[in-house]
């Protein structure tokens, strides 16, 4: 049943003009950012004396910045991708098809969530072309690439669960997208406060609840168990909130 719902979500995405518009814009912006970073790196390397060129690490200057930029774009794109999940179903009353079927709310949420994750994977796969183009240059560290992509995907997973929750709050898709954006931005801002707080304990707490704090570890090529535990807990919490929201129909 989860697979059926996931398949339906994916079909719906690929049939919608919105999916293609967002994909096109994403590719355009990421491509431009990548070119800009590459251009900047090449120009700077040329100006630096040969014996100092090792300081200009290609991975740090281009690949990690590319990942950060993609992460920034996901802040805007994920709520747009997720806004339809429940809002549209509520608006068109198709949600009643699910509610009147012998399937649990959990299956509905997981089906929709997996559908959205695959859409996210599709988006991220659009960026595979950039490391591939550079692979012949042998200047990128493959482990950074793998952990970077894992980080991006995990970040997207968190943004997706927030977007799905936001989508379950309103029948208006625009409001849902806006709600999702504000919630994700809230998680980002929490991290900024964490970095600037002078109170050690508060800073630690704020940092820990910020996805970008954990993302930074993965960007550095390290995978900590605590980071994975955070992402897992975050996603479970988001799914639980959405489940509670669906159950509110009986309140």
């Amino acid at each position: 049943m989860i697979f059926l719902i996931m398949k339906k979500e994916l079909k719906s995405f690929f049939r919608s003009p919105l999916g293609y518009v967002v994909t096109g814009l994403f590719c355009l912006v990421v491509g431009w950012m990548f070119m800009h970073q590459l251009d900047y790196f090449i120009n700077n390397v040329q100006k630096v004396p040969v014996h100092m060129r090792n300081h200009y690490d290609f991975t740090n200057e281009v690949i990690i910045k590319l990942f950060s930029n993609v992460n920034f774009l996901l802040l805007f794109i994920t709520p747009i991708l997720g806004m339809r999940s429940f809002s549209e179903e509520y608006r068109d009353r198709t949600i009643e098809l699910y509610f009147s079927s012998p399937i649990s709310d959990f299956e509905i949420i997981i089906g929709k969530y997996l559908g959205l994750l695959l859409q996210g994977f599709f988006f991220l796969s659009m960026t595979f072309i950039y490391p591939l183009v550079l692979s012949n240059l042998e200047i990128t560290d493959i482990s950074f690439l793998i952990t970077g992509y894992i980080g991006l995907f995990l970040n997207f997973s968190c943004y997706a669960v927030i977007s799905i929750f936001a989508s379950s709050l309103s029948t208006n898709q625009i409001l849902s997208a806006l709600g999702g954006f504000v919630l994700i931005l809230g998680i980002w801002i929490t991290g900024w406060f964490g970095q600037s707080s002078s109170n050690y304990l508060l800073a630690q707490i704020l940092n820990f609840v910020s996805v970008n704090f954990h993302f930074t570890h993965l960007l550095k090529g390290t995978i900590h168990f605590s980071d994975l535990a955070f992402y897992f807990s975050f996603i479970c919490f988001g799914i639980l909130l959405t489940k509670k929201r669906l159950e509110a129909r009986f309140w």
């Binding site: 079909k11 009353r93 198709t94 949600i95 009643e96």
Partner: peptide
């Protein structure tokens, strides 16, 4: 149970 309540719940695509 099968039902049709008010507007039909349709996936237009």
């Amino acid at each position: 149970l099968g039902f049709l309540l008010e507007d039909p719940p349709l996936y237009r695509d």
